[in-house]
């Protein structure tokens, strides 16, 4: 047994392949046999992975969900930003450059709308919860954009570490909410074409949430959502600590 433990510990990424493979196989079978395919297996697997991520956080008291359990540490490599971005780029082979160019303006409009909307509502909710200073409100609003924009903005304008932690928490909740809600809302909002996916990616913005949500809805739409979502965090980091902060501090005197 000791030998096996050493092997599992040394080959984290391979264990992660095995783990995800078993999870996918189990949810596929469950989706076909128990649900008649009404919920796609991949959507179930992503949802179950979130639940397991919660359990992992409870058991190991770390910050990386299930990847905090030492035998499953490879999950953070497999699910890390390097492999995620590499695989998203590979999905572009199924995309049409002409369609992306045709919807370029729609994507730009969506990006602007999306950052403004999330920032505005984040600030409003911060205000309702009792925050009154421009620095804290701006950081919370930025956190409502993505969990990267939040701390980048907070760091730039000198927010307290408590507020920065709160903005990261807000951003992670957003990612999870987008992941879970996208396959549920897809039909209602008409998320069924490349142009629709591009404006959805621009408005929602969180690359992880958009990527996971579209994967659970229709994998063919992933590259279109990703191509706009990839600009969201950068644009958010640009306007939140500058333009939006100036507007907020002027409004608050």
């Amino acid at each position: 047994m000791k030998e096996l433990e050493v092997i599992l510990d040394k080959n984290g990424l391979i264990v992660a392949f095995l783990f995800v493979g078993i999870l996918t196989w189990a949810t596929d079978v469950f989706s076909k046999k128990a649900l008649n395919g009404r919920i796609p297996g991949s959507a179930l697997a992503i949802g179950l992975a979130l639940v397991l991520g919660y359990l992992g956080g409870v058991l190991a008291e770390g910050e990386q969900g299930l990847a905090d359990l030492s035998y499953l540490k490879g999950l953070s490599t497999l699910g890390g930003s390097m492999f995620r971005d590499f695989a998203i780029v590979a999905t572009a082979t199924g995309a049409s450059f002409v369609l992306i160019r045709k919807s370029g303006l729609l994507g730009l409009v969506s990006l602007t709308l999306g950052i403004g909307l999330f920032f505005g509502f984040g600030v409003a909710i911060g205000w309702i919860m009792g925050y009154r200073d421009a620095v804290s409100l701006c950081t919370i609003g930025a956190g409502a954009c993505t969990y990267i924009v939040g701390p980048v903005t907070g760091g730039a304008i000198g927010a307290s570490s408590e507020v920065i932690a709160l903005s990261i928490g807000t951003g992670v909740v957003k990612t999870i909410a987008v992941t879970i809600l996208t396959p549920i809302m897809a039909k209602w909002i008409g998320l069924n074409s490349p142009a629709a996916a591009m404006s959805y990616g621009g408005i929602m913005g969180t690359s992880s949430g958009v990527a996971a949500g579209l994967a659970a809805t229709d994998p063919a739409l992933v590259p279109y959502g990703a191509v706009t979502a990839t600009f969201y965090t950068g644009l958010g980091c640009l306007v939140c600590p500058s333009l939006f902060y100036l507007i907020l501090s002027t409004l608050l005197g």
Binding site: V20, L50, G53, G56, L78, I168, S208, A215
Partner: peptide
């Protein structure tokens, strides 16, 4: 490999702290 990567990513998100970071974050 994209969907398996997304599954691994979902499993390694800090879900617990997101859920416990308070009403405002939720």
């Amino acid at each position: 490999l994209y969907i398996p990567i997304v599954i691994a990513m979902a499993a390694s998100l800090n879900v617990k702290s997101a859920l416990s970071s308070g009403v405002l974050a939720l």
